[in-house]
């Protein structure tokens, strides 16, 4: 009798141990997960941060369009349609494209439809222009913010002076030397729209399909999947999706910056998340099996 009791006690102890073990891990405080992810993202910055990257067809295509602009001596348009919320993904793209354009003496016109990103766009253009000794009004121009992108894009197809009279700094557009002879989308080789909103789609509806120009969208990774159909239909000539695309652009142009630096952290962050997903699933099934066994016994 006493031996049976001992066995039962031992079984109960083992079961309780298993139960507490499962429960402890399954009820792991989510803040531990945050700590692991934070470490996975931050530690690679202290190590060699460069990850081997291969460019995709659509990023290469965007890069080639800027090269073509340099050969044809035509300016390009960049829509800086992002704000601090999507800065981490879209700013590296903007910086890479600007560096590429300025290094090839391609003139750049910046526009903006996202109000909270206006001064961000102006500062980005100014800083990169300084790196290459480019001057406002001669090598680049920033038109600033305007609401109602639909109306502005339709006007831009005819003459951008219909919507924009002065630039962001209050100068009359007719006084800017780089804008002489420029009138509408036809005078620019490629238009980029960098945005985490639905604006890249608006550019297609009110711009590309009406006025037929080379168009590349730079979007956040969340919305990248939505834009692939426009590549197949030829409405977009290139697509930059998330920080990885920025890294690819940096890789092609040979200028390592925030995009490529972030890739090691990106990989380790993903590995950590995959690890937690796998462990969570294993524990879920183990717990289910354990509970079924307990029911049967």
């Amino acid at each position: 009798m006493s031996i049976e009791n001992n066995n039962n006690n031992n079984n109960n102890n083992n079961n309780n141990k298993n139960k507490t073990w499962f429960q402890a891990i399954l009820n792991l405080d989510k803040r531990f997960v945050y700590i692991f992810i934070f470490l996975a993202v931050s530690l690679p910055f202290f190590l060699d941060p460069v990850v081997d990257i291969k460019s995709t067809k659509w990023v290469q295509s965007a890069y080639d369009l800027v090269d073509e602009a340099a050969q044809k001596r035509k300016p390009i348009i960049i829509g800086f349609d992002y704000d601090p919320a999507t800065l981490a993904e879209l700013q590296p793209m903007a910086v890479s494209i600007l560096r590429h354009a300025f290094s090839k003496n391609v003139k750049v016109v910046g526009i903006n439809f996202i109000l909270n990103g206006t001064s961000l766009a102006a500062t980005t253009m100014e800083n990169i222009a300084k790196e290459y000794g480019k001057k406002n009004g001669e090598d680049y121009a920033f038109f600033g913010y305007l609401p109602q992108p639909t109306v502005v894009l339709l006007n831009f197809g005819e003459n951008f002076r219909k919507s924009y009279k002065k630039d962001y700094y209050g100068k009359d557009l007719n006084e800017l030397p780089m804008l002489k002879g420029l009138q509408n989308f036809d005078d620019f080789h490629v238009v980029f729209c960098l945005s985490g909103t639905g604006l890249p789609g608006t550019y297609i509806v009110y711009g590309v399909d009406r006025f037929k120009f080379n168009y590349v969208a730079g979007v956040t990774a969340v919305s990248a999947a939505d834009y692939y159909p426009y590549l197949q239909s030829g409405q977009m000539k290139g697509l930059l999706g998330g920080m990885k695309a920025a890294a690819e652009y940096e890789f092609i142009s040979g200028k390592i910056s925030d995009g490529m630096r972030g890739m090691a952290s990106q990989s380790w962050g993903h590995i950590t998340i995959i690890f937690f997903i796998i462990v969570g699933n294993i524990l879920f099934y183990a717990k289910k099996r354990y509970e079924d066994k307990e029911k049967n016994s």
């Binding site: 931050s42 202290f46 981490a88």
Partner: peptide, 28 residues
């Protein structure tokens, strides 16, 4: 799409971490 979403969220964290480590602390 979900994979892309995870990538986007990690990117945002990377942006902030890089800002703290490089621009603020100057340790990288």
């Amino acid at each position: 799409s979900f994979g892309y979403t995870v990538m986007a969220r990690i990117s945002l964290l990377i942006g902030r971490v890089l800002f703290l480590l490089r621009d603020w602390l100057g340790v990288v």
